[in-house]
Design a protein around this nucleic acid. Structure first.
Lengths: 270, 270
DNA sequence: GCGAGCGCGTGACAAAAGTCACTGCCAGGC
DNA sequence: GCCTGGCAGTGACTTTTGTCACGCGCTCGC
């Protein structure tokens, strides 16, 4: 296995950052995971662990014990954390940055299943059913994760069932999102999905302005992976939405001019 | 809330059946769940519980205690166990029969997410994250389920973490299936999904014959809900597969004439 | 400053998916 | 028997989706 060290130093983020400056940024595009991987144990990630809702139930001693066994890994933007189909070694808890979970088709198309935010965990599936990763994960920005081995996670769940319940909660949340994706893919058009993505974006990270909520797009390619289509259709549909006066497009900045209109449009196409 | 009692008596199934003959078959098409529901407690479902992998870890006393709080519910074919969007009261463990989990679109189309077999549980999501049901469930055949209230499930998980791990495993299995559905919906054609459904069927419940594996279809409507399309396309694609000599169709009985051919076809269309 | 590479917009198609409207068949209830 | 209702098959379209092939403009590194 080749481990590519990315030159770019990880960005430190406020109080989330723990003291283990020496851990190398890790990345690779073809990690099939069975690994002679040597992780540098983190001196004291107790702070990071503590901040995780997942481990809120643990007391100081337990956190310390877990910390001894958790590894902090850093990834640069674009790095692949794990690839679909490779064997799973443990659970990831996202400390900072954002991670996308996605499938890739034989022809190279990508479908994003979820974008994880700090505080969430991922790769629970294979931890609990023993199979390979069902999808790939890559860092959308410089990212820090805590990695906890499969057996440690399971032991922890047995010892502190609250943790298992928390994990179930996280898994449930993702399951909901994934079911919503199916619903949209199965029942709606590209246009509908795109509009619904725009509205979700506006609701979660839109900045208000005089003309309407402002959101920033990723590349059309990326957006296409979110809504399950190809670049060209994203482009065309955005153009059309602009022509219809629903949105204003300036490069990657979009202003939602007619929120009600878009919502009505969604409702109509159902 | 209206509770419709279906006249048809529940079919008893071998040694799975527990003693509470009096429990009425329950069904409804529009149960929004908040319920003045009175369940008849089952006299002794220990036998049923014991048979469930989910509770394999429990000892006799625990099973008895759980049994006191579990309810056996029976549904006739076609009954709706719960409807998408309604509030969740607890966990279902399937004892006998088959249950489909599905979404319905505004225009009336149906997309099946999973078909549960005995031994599996469902509706874990809302139990652990507190939200409403993300999808509906209905009985594909006469069915018996054990129903355990949300709080009982959670208490049990805290007391016997092995149960939580088992539930996580069940959830993981479903998550895998659901991700596979997304992959197919996003990347492949109706034909591809149909072929892949046929092959899966052949692999799991195909009966061998001289000409090839024999499988029995549900209605085209139902099959369409499985592969995420409409009746007409199922019909046309089956006709075409037959014309190409891959399968032989006799009413709802299909013989896979050229398994390799179909597999090659799948691989080619990727 | 300039070439390479990337992201974007678009026209022209081709293919797939979905809709509508009918027809025919068969089983069940009266 | 006859009517009704639920499936199934199909022709004739329309809409959507996806593909290919370009052209354009920006930015980045030399």
């Amino acid at each position: 296995m080749t481990v590519v060290m990315r030159g770019r130093p990880p960005r430190h983020r406020g109080d989330q950052v723990v003291g283990a400056g020496g851990t190398p940024t890790r990345g690779l595009s073809n990690d099939h995971g069975t690994s002679d991987d040597k992780m540098t144990p983190v001196s004291s990630p107790v702070v990071s662990l503590q901040a995780q809702p997942l481990f809120a139930a643990l007391d100081e001693a337990e956190l310390t014990s877990l910390a001894d066994r958790a590894h902090l890994r850093r990834y640069a933007q674009g790095d692949v954390l794990f690839a679909e189909g490779s064997a799973c070694e443990g659970l990831y808890v996202l400390v900072s940055g954002r991670v996308k979970i996605f499938k890739t088709s034989a022809s190279g198309r990508e479908q994003i299943l979820a974008v994880e935010e700090p505080g969430s965990s991922f790769a629970e599936l294979p931890v609990f059913d023993g199979g390979p990763y069902p999808a790939s994960a890559s860092a959308m920005s410089d990212t820090e994760v805590l990695f906890i081995s499969r057996s440690d996670v399971r032991a922890l769940c047995l010892e502190r069932p609250e943790v298992a319940l928390k994990i179930l909660q996280v898994v449930a949340a993702r399951q909901r999102r994934v079911v919503a994706v199916i619903e949209e893919l199965s029942f709606t058009t590209v246009r509908h999905r795109l509009v619904s993505w725009l509205l979700r974006q506006a609701a979660t990270s839109g900045r208000p302005s005089a003309r309407g909520s402002i959101i920033t797009l990723p590349s059309h390619q990326e957006l296409a992976a979110h809504v399950g289509t190809v670049r060209e259709l994203v482009s065309r549909n955005l153009t059309r939405l602009q022509a219809q006066g629903f949105i204003a497009v300036e490069a990657r900045v979009i202003t939602i001019l007619d929120l009600q209109g878009l919502e009505a449009d969604l409702a109509a196409s159902e």
